[in-house]
Every structure is written in C-alpha cells, then in structure tokens.
Design a protein around this nucleic acid. Structure first.
Lengths: 345, 345
DNA sequence: TTGTACGCGTTATCAA
DNA sequence: TTGATAACGCGTACAA
C-alpha cells in the first residue's frame, strides 16, 4: 500500500480530479451523493491530502514556526503551551526549532523555514542583533514575525515579554525589607534581559539608600552548567571570605538561581538565615527545593498565547503593517522559604 | 521585495530555468562561469529555494519529525540534543511536536506530518497501543518510524530506550543496603515504563527476602502536578500514620521523585534520616536540591543519537526492512545525599 | 554546455 | 452539478 492521491480516487470512482478536489473541501458545487461517495472512498483507503502540493498551489502552508534558544526550561515550555492552545483553535500547525543560543544555528533555522514557506514566525532571538537581516527579509516577504521573551531585538515588530525592571526591583525591595543590605546580583554576561534586571536591582538599592558595591555584581558565563557553577562558586567563596559577608542573592535566571541554591547547600551555608535567595525562575520545582525557592516568575503561557494570537491576526490581515507594539506583562513574586529570614516569621 | 524564484533568475540573467536549477545544485553540466554568475545573482537577491516545490518534485522533504509526549522535561531535551546532533551532520531538518500525553493530539500530529511528507518519524508514543494504525500506515507508505523512550508500543520497528528493570532493581538494592526495609514505590498509573520498573523493584525485594507490602505500591494520577501532589501527599500521610513507618521512597519518574522531595520538606520529614529518597530522574537540578537528590538517570542524548542515526539509515536504504531490534541502554545511578542514611557516612 | 518539455498533486477558472 | 485545463516552482530526461 502506497500513498493515494485525488487522482487515484478520481479514477476509481470514475469522476474528474476537480470533482474530487471540490468534494473533499466540501464545496457547494458538488452534490451530496457524490460528496459522500468520494469521502467514503477516501476514508476507506485512508487518503490524506498532500499538503506539499497544496502549499505550492495556495502559496501558504498553514504552518507557523517557533524558534527558541532552548526548549529545556520551564519558561519556554509554558510559552509553547500558550502557543499550542491558539494553534489548535486556529488550526495552525507548529514547527518548533531551537537555536541553542547560537547565531549560526538560528540563521539556518530561519533559512530552512523561509524555504519551507511558513506563514509566520515566533522567535526569541539569540541576541539583540542576531540575524536581523534574515528576519527583515522574512518580513519583506510578507511573512509576519513576532518576538517573545527576548524582546530587546532591534527588529521593529510586535514583541511580547515581561517587565524585567519591575520584577527585579520588587525582588530587591523584598530582600531589603527582610533586612538584607549586602545583596549579590548573579546574572549572565550576555543575556538579553540582563540589563533591565540589573537596572531594577540598582534602582531598588538607590531607593533605599543602600550603596552599591560593584563586587556584588556577578556576571556568569551561561554557556553550560559547568561554567555557571564554576563562576558562582568562585564568587561565593570570595564573598564569604570578605569582611562584610553577603546576606542575600538575587539571581537573574532560572538556572543561576537554582544552581546557587545547590552550591550553597554544598558549601553548608544556611539558606535563608546565612543568606537569603530569590531569583527569576519559572521552574515548577521551586516548591520542591529545600528551602523552597522564592521566585519572580513570568506569565509564560500568556506570553505564548498573546504572541501567537497576534501572529495569527497578522497572517490573516495580509495588509502591510507599520505600527507595532511592545507588550510587557507583569511578573509575579512568589515568596517561599529561601528568602524569608526566620527571625521575621 | 518579494520572494524570488529560479525563473526570476533565469529571466534576469537571460538563461533557461533548467540552467539555473542545475547551476544552483552545482551540476557538472554547467560551466564555472555561468555557475558563478547565477550564484552571485542568487546571493545578491537573497534567493532561497522553494522547498515546497522541491519536495513535491522529488517526493521527499529532507525533514524528519519528532513527536514527544511533552518537551518540558530534561530527559526529552537531552534526547532532542542527540537527535539534533545527527540532524546537523546529516543535513536533515527537524520538526518537533508534542502530543501532550493525548492520543487524539498524537493522531493529528501524525496526520499532519504524513500530509506534509516527512521522510521519517521518531516517536515516543502516548501509550502501548496509541495510533498503531497510523504508524503502521506510515511504515507502509515507506516512511520509516523509530521509537524512543516509551518502547512498549506494539509497533514492530526499531526501539531505543533503557533497561528499566535493571535501573529499578539497582535503586532498590541501594536502598536495601542502606538498611531500608519498608520502601514505598511511587509510580504512575498509566505509564509505559511503569511495569518494568515495578518488576525490578519487586525483584530486588525478593532477592533480599523482604516481604512486599501491597500498600507500599502507590500509583499516582500523572495528569498534572496537582493530581500528583495530592496523591503523593495522601499516601505519605497515611504511611507515616501507620505502625511501621516507611524508611525509603523509590520514585518511578522525574516529576514524582522531585515532588515527593518537596512534599517531605513541607511535612517537615527529614530526608534521608527519616526517609531516604531515590528515583528515576534526568533533571539537572538534582544537585541543587537539598538534600541533593539521588537519581537513576538515563543516557538521553545517546538515546536520541542512536535513534536518529538508525532512522537516517533506514531512510537512505529504501529497501523494505523486516528485521528490527529493540536497544535497551544502561541507566546510571547517581548517589547523592537524599538516599544516604547519615549513620552510614 | 545549454535549453525544451513534462510532471509532481493540488486548486481555481471557465466551460459544458 | 461536473469536467477540462492552467498554474504553483522545481528537477530531469532528452534534444540541441
């Protein structure tokens, strides 16, 4: 048994190819009787339409693509959930790809997708300027592009992310209100959202008249867990050797914050009493940490939902769009045990 | 600027379409001079070939698809890494989809992929018998299918997973050697790999002449974290109220084990002294738990690598294959603090 | 070395 | 209500 086409059906049923085509798309031009004959035969021989030919003919594929830097984190999976929800309602197929934080992989993803004729692209770019040319080219080819999460790209289009400044500010204020005055900010050296989070952190310090010690700014190499761990461990060792020991950590990402917690446990440093910990994180395991991890979390599913909804809208209104918005949603703070000084309970 | 085709190039350069086609695929039939003229023009106008038309013509798409039940877990992301590695060398594009543990979503994924003309499919099926008909149909349409992770499907093809029995056996023996005799096995009610893991668990008990208390078998509803948490919490409460309290937990999955750890912390039950914990898990955060989580982990990347390599091989040798293997790799045990009774240190 | 002509499977236009 | 035909963009015999 091999693939069967509408031509095969037309021969078997002694009708024309166009009749079959119309019947299968439930055209009003075809009588109910022939429609059902054709449908029955199609089902019986489990015919499935050749979408490749269909795409070629129609000039659209009913497919959108998502390019994320990595899909092995909770924020991205939550975003994908939101995207899928819209996709199912709106009957779009989704292609998921990961750029692995690498501009050249990102480039080849975009190339492949362009060649494959997607109807729209959702992307969280590797960096501020990565593959701008390609994305621009897509836009010019009438393929709408919407950004999510990493919304610092120079590309002019719709962007969906969160208020990184505010989230960082709130987290820092929370720590300060716990009595912390010597807060480490562990972050990434080349992270798109790092600047805003740093700004929020600094703003909170300033607000409460807490001097900022440049040594407390700790950028890590986010390449992999080994480099992250090494950088964190080194910084913590140094910090705890100094005269005025740190009393809190504000982590800029999921991974940074979680690894910090593990390293502290390994160093036998008590959290939250010796040092409080809070950080940006969407992990579902925050609750399962010990102490349970306080987090600033992002409305991942909603980001995906909104971004995809906008993309679909742009696909359907083919008209050229020159007006764009950047939507920054609120983060939410989840205070658990890791940032609650026990004297305060 | 809109999309440009080889026809456009042929007109601009005053050559025939076929010359352009041949030139772009570096045919020896075309002179170097025309080749470079054509290539230059193509690059200058950032031409990208229409893969839809190409697929239609060639009858293949140079694309393989991966269907996982969910991509928000470390095992799956590691498997995807392995797959991507092979894909990059062998120049295949990858489409990733998730079935969300739902047979009907799985079905529509397969339908879409079949219609879209993929060259091969890697799938971790929702259940033992889910969509067997569709997968069989794909195979009969000469689209090779390779299974990974959930290799209990009735489909007859290559399958790549791990020795679940052995992994469970080792974990249980480890607990027994720590002095545990009243071990809870928390698992999933409808999990493809659950039976083998249960068997390994029971075999270890029998080996060490430890009677099995049926109450210690705790199947959870894996639908979401709420149902999992509720089931675990209920079971733990009950177990700790009984005369002979449990002294260990062997968790069947990532999520189960991690949630158990969190719930225990929440119940103020000391791990590992009150109760030791070990479980199947590939999470990178095991280290960051407190106590750090002992795990049985799977060689995810290798599973992906091998499965994809086999798939590519099957795609290239178009010949009908009727001989298949099931490859079960070794798991590895990582003993951390959660399963080490302190009296033993 | 280059060009002509056909077909992949589908939809759409127009005629019957 | 149905059918013949052209076209989507590309690759490939075959002819020149």
């Amino acid at each position: 048994m091999t693939k069967i086409t509408i031509k095969d059906i037309s021969i078997a049923l002694q009708v024309s190819i166009s009749t079959v085509s119309k019947a299968l798309s439930d055209s009003h031009e075809i009588s109910e009787s022939t429609k059902s004959r054709i449908r029955d035969y199609a089902k019986a021989n489990n015919f499935s339409i050749n979408k490749v030919a269909q795409s070629l003919k129609l000039g659209r594929s009913n497919t959108i693509a998502v390019i994320a830097c990595a899909i092995n984190n909770d924020l991205v999976s939550q975003i994908l959930e939101g995207i899928q929800e819209v996709a199912i309602e709106s009957k779009y197929d989704i292609i998921i790809m990961q750029s692995m934080e690498d501009e050249s992989i990102e480039r080849s993803c975009i190339e492949v997708l362009k060649a494959r004729g997607i109807d729209g692209l959702l992307i969280s770019p590797v960096s501020e300027s990565s593959n701008i040319d390609m994305l621009l080219n897509l836009k010019l080819s009438k393929v709408p592009v919407v950004l999510f999460d990493r919304i610092n790209s120079q590309l002019n289009t719709y962007k969906y992310g969160v208020k990184n400044f505010d989230g960082a500010y709130q987290a820092t204020v929370h720590l300060i209100k716990q009595g912390c005055t010597n807060i480490l900010h562990i972050t990434g050296s080349q992270l798109g959202v790092a600047n805003e989070r740093l700004s929020g952190f600094l703003a909170a310090l300033q607000e409460y008249r807490i001097p900022f010690n440049p040594e407390n700014y700790i950028p890590c190499n986010l390449k992999n867990t080994n480099t992250i761990d090494a950088d964190i461990r080194k910084a913590l060792k140094k910090a705890f050797k100094s005269k005025n020991k740190p009393d809190a950590i504000f982590g800029a990402t999921d991974l940074i914050t979680i690894r910090s917690l593990g390293i502290l446990a390994d160093m036998n440093i008590n959290v939250p009493n010796d040092i409080a910990v809070i950080g940006f994180a969407n992990t579902k395991a925050a609750f399962a940490m010990n102490p349970s991890l306080s987090t600033i979390s992002q409305p991942g599913k909603q980001i995906g939902y909104l971004a995809m909804t906008q993309l679909v809208k742009m696909i359907k209104t083919k008209r050229e769009i020159d007006y764009f918005e950047t939507i920054e949603l609120d983060t939410s703070m989840h205070i658990r045990k890791s940032s609650l000084k026990e004297t305060r309970i």
